[in-house]
């Protein structure tokens, strides 16, 4: 895989996060959460750095990253779209919504749009089953979504929106 060069600032951010958990191997999941929150995703180079900081093997770090679907190894769009595929959402038509988003953005699940604006993922249950089917864009939850509404939701983010706060690598 192609190597990316981490900036000094990025390295410092990751080191700080690890230090805030006392470089404790047992805090790996928290470290990964926090790092992804700050940096958007967890590329191989970041995982290698975390492994060194927590004094554990990078294979173990990668094992945890690939076990939990929450963690991403490819850059997320500026506005990550998540479609809930939990039971309630699924029976109320989540699949059609997902299909419509894929069609509109012309990307598959796990991919980002070429302009880096949107990425698409599925998740399992956000605990809002009463609002099924549920779509999340960033931290914002959209309930009882119908396929016809997808265009409108995406349009909200097409321009003029406040960028989420995130450090660039």
């Amino acid at each position: 895989m192609p190597k990316i060069k981490l900036s000094q600032k990025t390295i410092e951010i990751v080191k700080e996060i690890c230090a805030s958990f006392e470089n404790n191997e047992g805090e790996l999941i928290n470290v990964l959460h926090e790092t992804q929150h700050k940096l958007g995703y967890l590329p191989a180079e970041i995982q290698e750095l975390i492994a060194i900081e927590l004094n554990m093997s990078v294979a173990k770090v990668y094992g945890v990253v690939t076990f939990y679907s929450f963690f991403n190894m490819i850059p997320q769009g500026e506005f990550p779209i998540s479609v809930c595929m939990g039971t309630a959402c699924y029976v109320r038509g989540a699949e059609q919504i997902l299909h419509e988003i894929k069609r509109q953005l012309n990307i598959e699940v796990g991919q980002s749009t070429p302009d880096g604006k949107f990425s698409l993922n599925c998740l399992r249950c956000v605990g809002a089953c009463g609002l099924a089917p549920v779509v999340m864009v960033g931290d914002k939850v959209y309930g009882r979504v119908a396929p016809q509404q997808v265009r409108k939701i995406i349009a909200e983010y097409q321009e003029g929106c406040v960028k989420p706060e995130r450090h660039e690598m």
Binding site: M1, S57, V58, A59, G63, T66, F67
Partner: peptide, 24 residues
């Protein structure tokens, strides 16, 4: 990992795709 402390292998992925492999 436990005996040799080499850390080349780990369980990765989940479900049907789960397997033991080196990082990445």
């Amino acid at each position: 990992n436990e005996v040799q402390s080499v850390g080349a292998l780990s369980a990765i992925n989940r479900g049907f795709n789960a397997v033991v492999a080196p990082a990445f």
